[in-house]
Design a protein around this nucleic acid. Sequence first.
DNA 1: GGTAGGATGGGCT
DNA 2: GCCCATCCTACCC
Length: 193
Amino acid sequence: MRWLKRPLPRSFYARPTVETARDLLGKILVRGDAAARIVETEAYLGEGDLAAHSAAGITDRTRVIFGPAGHAYIYLSYGVHHCLDVVAEQDGRPGCVLIRAAEPIAGIDGMRARRPKAKRLRDLASGPGKLAAALGLTLEQNGLDVTRPGELTIHEPCPKGEFEIAVGPRVGISKSVELPLRFWIADNEHVSR
DNA sequence: GGTAGGATGGGCT
DNA sequence: GCCCATCCTACCC
């Protein structure tokens, strides 16, 4: 699969978080030699979403979420794994999209080297912690602008390809569990389980 | 095939 | 001090 050289523009992200989360499905995440097709996302909203990190307001950690769209928000989960989000909404309004899973399409040897315990291809990035590890993302990459050519970017695939989008409740959270804010490509092998 | 429980550290009350 | 936007292993069908 190929993808457009220019990253998706900031206007793609500076929209309501739910729209950005749905539209990120099928897009290509590029990190150095590695590329992976996004197959699962979750929206974390501003007001009324108690599961979102931004619900606690602006702190040193959550500052990026309130900043301009199109930047990476990376955090440490359970003291063990890193997770990648992309900031959405207009500047000053919180909202971000957790990239939960992706399908490796290039630089697979490198991903395997960073995830030696993954046996099958579909174990490489089929979860937020696995995805960050496969792409070599840590807190050092927090705040990166994914709309500018550099360490981490997101691109339109070409050809685009058709797929069916499934919707359901988010996983791994204890608050606001009833909101249908998880999106994934139906019947895709690389979605988390 | 399935699941219960431990590791592990930063953020927030 | 308590709470996690998780993964992996061991162990049990």
